[in-house]
């Protein structure tokens, strides 16, 4: 078939995939520190977007101010969620923890709909609709911006995990008991990871919101996010980046060709298939760690 078409699908897919990575990064941050698979991450993305709109449309703040304000708000919201809902369940069977995050997901989504209504709202962050050509390839400008932001954020996190506080977070994800034994406040670390994940979610909400408009469908990014997370390894940020690109390319190319055959909707099928296959073949994902076995 047409090579340019294939290339165009791949590149745009990779860019969109990096934006899935953004959702996955939030999931990874929380999973790394507390082994909680956060099924409410999609709703956090949605909530973040609504909060930005609340600051900009509701209170009239300009976008460049509304976004940081919303991030700060979500930082504390994430902490609050951990404190009020998750901490009590520490040590409980995983089914209850999963159910709690699902309950949060339902509650946040319906809560946002109750407050802001079901119709989509535009998020304007000043990305023009003009086509962007890379040689013969037509790129989606919004995806380019989103992918760039994701990579920057990833770099920030890589650096952060080298700082003292970052090292402490990694220590917590290694061993709770040992962390307590040297005076690390595990609770505070876990709360911080929720806060950071919520900030990342806000970023994702802004970017995805500007592409598709802000409504409850933003929360369905969860499926993509968790698939990317699992594929990359739920405790690996770098894995999330690579897996995002991989899934994005796969999804875009496969649906580019399959949709004509199957009559649409093959995107979700690809995602579900990747999720199942990953779990069957390599449940720890591409870069997830098995515990080190010393030789």
């Amino acid at each position: 078939m047409d090579l340019t078409y294939l290339l165009e699908l791949s590149v745009n897919g990779a860019l969109a995939g990096l934006m899935y990575s953004l959702v996955a990064m939030g999931i990874v941050l929380i999973y790394k520190s507390s082994s909680v698979p956060n099924l409410a991450q999609g709703s956090l993305v949605m909530l973040g977007a609504y909060i930005v709109l609340a600051f900009s449309n509701g209170l009239g703040a300009p976008m460049w101010m509304a976004i940081p304000l919303a991030m700060a708000f979500m930082f504390f919201a994430g902490m609050g969620i951990e404190r009020l809902a998750l901490r009590r369940l520490a040590g409980r069977p995983i089914v209850m923890i999963l159910m709690m995050t699902l309950g949060l997901d339902i509650f946040l989504r319906a809560g946002a709909m109750t407050i802001w209504g079901g119709s989509g709202r535009p998020m304007r962050i000043g990305i023009s609709d003009d086509p962007l050509f890379l040689g013969p390839l037509l790129l989606n400008r919004a995806y380019v911006v989103g992918a760039a932001v994701t990579l920057v954020l990833f770099a920030v996190f890589v650096l952060f995990f080298r700082t003292r506080r970052g090292v402490v977070l990694r220590a917590i994800s290694d061993d709770y008991m040992a962390s307590w034994s040297v005076g690390i406040s595990v609770e505070r670390g876990v709360a911080l990871s929720w806060a950071l994940a919520s900030v990342v979610a806000t970023t994702a909400g802004v970017l995805w919101g500007s592409i598709q408009s802000v409504d409850q469908s933003l929360s369905t990014l969860l499926l993509k996010g968790i698939t990317v997370g699992v594929l990359g390894g739920l405790d690996s940020l770098g894995g999330a980046i690579l897996a995002g690109i991989l899934l994005g390319v796969l999804e875009s190319v496969a649906s580019g060709y399959l949709d004509k055959l199957l009559g649409g909707g093959s995107r979700d099928l690809v995602v579900a298939a990747v999720l199942i296959l990953t779990i069957m073949i390599r449940p720890h994902g591409l870069f997830g760690r098995h515990d080190i076995e010393r030789i």
């Binding site: 009590r88 709690m100 309950g103 339902i106 946040l108 319906a110 809560g111 407050i115 079901g118």
Partner: peptide, 25 residues
């Protein structure tokens, strides 16, 4: 609003799950 009312049941449903898990898992 009608729209608000339409989403309250879902919210209650989510809250119910959260509440039960917090009070008596």
């Amino acid at each position: 609003g009608v729209e608000t009312l339409a989403h309250i049941p879902q919210m209650v449903y989510g809250a119910l799950i959260i509440g039960v898990l917090l009070v008596e898992p």
